[in-house]
Design a protein around this nucleic acid. Structure first.
Length: 574
RNA sequence: CCGGGUGUGGCGCAGCUUGGUAGCGCGCGUCGUUCGGGACGACGAGGCCGAAGGUUCAACUCCUUUCACCCGGACCA
């Protein structure tokens, strides 16, 4: 039983000045956490209980799926991370330190190396596979800028699993098992979430999905189709191209378009000088970039910008990507800033990528590769050819859903889980092989699956609060029932204690506000701020043998006889 | 890392423009009253004003440097 008369807890009347998101404000105000440094927090008793509840649910679901728990140190030697090149690749995000002898160590930002090496040390036969193991461990990442309190800290708790399989089918099965375990985990955590397809990107895997908990203050943007449920990370969104008949355009025609270095100015001149009625979407924008030293041009409709993140995610293997700067234009005089067109790309030795909307047969108004001149009827397939299509244009709300044509919305969310098929990158680097049934050595294929444990606490707080405070789901709350005793006589306090004890014998956790020196108002405010799902008030109604029951989430109140309350609570919680 | 902002008792803030050695609310302690919506009164404890250097008879206040924290961005999952 948590007795507030002795509980190590101090609630705050005001929001902490440095908090901006609800979870941060409320977890601090209600006394669950306290800040220690940027992105580093201490957990107080109430916070520890909520955190352990989240952990417990995750652990139960992992165990139920047949995964086994292990535990690695957070403090790790350099060498394995050297072998996978991550000592360097992780860059400044890695917390590094040295021991007294000057040997390098790191605080684990994630533990692929350790898992791989552990399996390598124990297993050597295909008969041992498949295997899925997990841990719940504190992770360290020296984020350039921690923010949003618990949501994005430099020290955080993560559940990470890894699957080990002989072949791709095995990996797919392990992946699906994790996917299902994650769905039941997040359902039990009472989180609203969407599973969105993501880019596996630099990690080198194939399939990848994120579990996103929608909330206004989330840091991730994703695309959602409310009609069919399609959801994708902005990077992974596929463009749906509307069918359009372009007919047979006339031959390319060069036009005088003085002072039209921007799309807007071009549209203006076309419409006023040439009497056309075009919009930016009828023009073709040639965005020049340098990808690992090579000049490339990305063609997008004039009303769209290039989203560098999307472009980069869809250009695998490119290390450095940047827009052309004035120096680049100076070096390549044939590329006239503001008047670039794709029809001379071959001649210029320029690699061309096109947005999927630039279909073969479409024709465009675009730069003539001469100052103050543009061309029209420049036709894809006739006047220029591309090296490939690429998803690089910005995604907008209202774009068509690739699976059902409905306009999509753009939403914000917190990433609470990520599952992906890692493949053989770590197994290869660390030589994790097993012998197959023919006695041949085979590199194991891996999957990697993470849940932000501390972040999940914040995400629940983020999705579930009101102007009064936190509103915890039953399984997460520090206690299921919060009993408040009011008044100055002993009777309500004695009765409240008796009820608390009785409820506890039913296996239901209780918090009892037995403070003699706090006024009723303070107790009510604290109960609401702390956010336990059921609040029982033992006070003035006692003269009629009544107590009050309130549901925190709905605010619904009811009067019950003292001798009914325990059975009523048991009923509500069963 | 780039740009902006803020550092004053445990928390939230004022004071700084115009230098004279620190104040308010909450919280905390004691006593009394109150007891179903963050009660009231009286008395009280608690602050090298983020740090270092400089200017000055005198610095919370002005100047320089530095550190920390927050916000936007870049980065990152």
């Amino acid at each position: 039983m948590l007795r507030m008369s002795s509980l190590f807890l101090r609630t705050l009347r005001d929001d902490p000045a440095d908090a901006t998101v609800p979870s941060h404000k409320l977890l601090v105000r209600a006394g669950y956490v306290r800040p220690i440094a940027a992105g580093i927090f201490s957990w107080l008793p109430l916070g520890v209980i909520a955190l352990r509840n989240v952990e417990r649910i995750i652990r139960e679901e992992m165990d139920r799926a047949g995964f086994q728990e292990v535990h690695f140190p957070a403090l790790l030697p350099r060498e394995p991370y050297e072998r996978t090149h991550r000592w360097d690749e992780y860059g400044p995000t890695l917390f590094r330190l040295q021991d007294r002898k000057g040997s390098d160590y790191l605080l684990g930002p994630t533990h692929e190396e350790m898992f791989t090496l552990m399996v390598k040390g124990e297993y050597s036969s295909y008969k041992d596979l498949p295997l899925s193991i997990y841990q719940i461990q504190t992770k360290y990442r020296d984020e350039a800028r921690p923010r949003s309190g618990i949501v994005r800290g430099r020290e955080f708790i993560m559940k990470d699993s890894y699957s080990f399989d002989l072949d791709d089918e095995g990996l797919e099965k392990s992946y699906q098992k994790h996917r299902e375990a994650y769905i039941s985990t997040f359902n039990r955590l009472n989180l609203k979430f969407n599973i969105v397809s993501a880019m596996s990107g630099a990690m080198g895997g194939s399939k990848s999905e994120e579990f996103l908990a929608p909330c206004e203050t989330g840091e991730d943007t994703y695309v959602l189709c409310e009609k069919c449920g399609y959801a994708a990370n902005v990077e992974a969104m596929k463009t749906k191209v509307a069918n359009r008949d372009f007919g047979t355009p006339p031959a390319m025609e060069i036009l005088d378009t003085p002072n039209t270095p921007t799309i807007d100015s071009l549209v203006e001149v076309m419409n006023s000088k040439y009497g056309s009625s075009i919009t930016a979407a009828d023009t073709l924008k040639n965005v020049l970039l340098v990808a690992d030293g090579e000049a490339i041009s990305v063609l997008v409709p004039g009303d769209r910008e290039v989203d560098l993140k999307r472009l980069e995610a869809n250009l695998p293997g490119i290390q450095e990507l940047r827009l052309f700067d004035d120096e680049d234009f100076a070096k390549r005089k044939e590329l006239v800033k503001g008047y670039v067109g794709p029809q001379d790309a071959k001649k210029f030795g320029l690699k061309l990528y096109a947005d999927p909307r630039v279909v073969v047969g479409s024709h465009w108004i675009t730069g003539a590769n001469h100052l103050n001149k543009h061309m029209r009827y420049v036709t894809h397939g006739r006047d220029f050819a591309v090296d490939g299509f690429i998803e690089a244009a910005e995604v907008r709300a209202g774009d068509l859903c690739p699976s059902c044509d409905n306009p999509v919305i753009i939403d914000r969310a917190i990433e609470i889980g990520h599952i992906f098929q890692l493949g053989r990158k770590y197994a290869e680097a660390l030589e994790l092989t097993v012998l197959d049934s023919e006695g041949k050595s085979r590199v194991v294929t891996m999957g990697s699956y993470g849940i932000g444990v501390s972040r999940a606490v914040a995400a629940i707080a983020e999705q579930s609060n009101d102007e009064l405070g936190l509103v915890w789901p039953e399984e997460i709350a520090p206690a299921k029932v919060h009993i408040v005793a009011t008044g100055k006589d002993d009777l309500p306090f004695d009765t409240a204690l008796k009820l608390a004890e009785e409820i506890e014998t039913k296996g239901i956790s209780v918090m009892l506000d037995d403070r003699r020196d706090a006024s009723p108002g303070v107790k009510f405010k604290d109960a609401e701020l702390i956010g336990n799902p059921y609040i029982v008030i033992v006070g003035k109604g006692l003269v009629d043998g009544k107590v009050e029951l309130r549901k925190r989430r709905t605010g619904e109140k009811s009067e019950l006889a003292v001798n009914e309350i325990v059975s009523q609570i048991v009923k509500l919680l069963s």
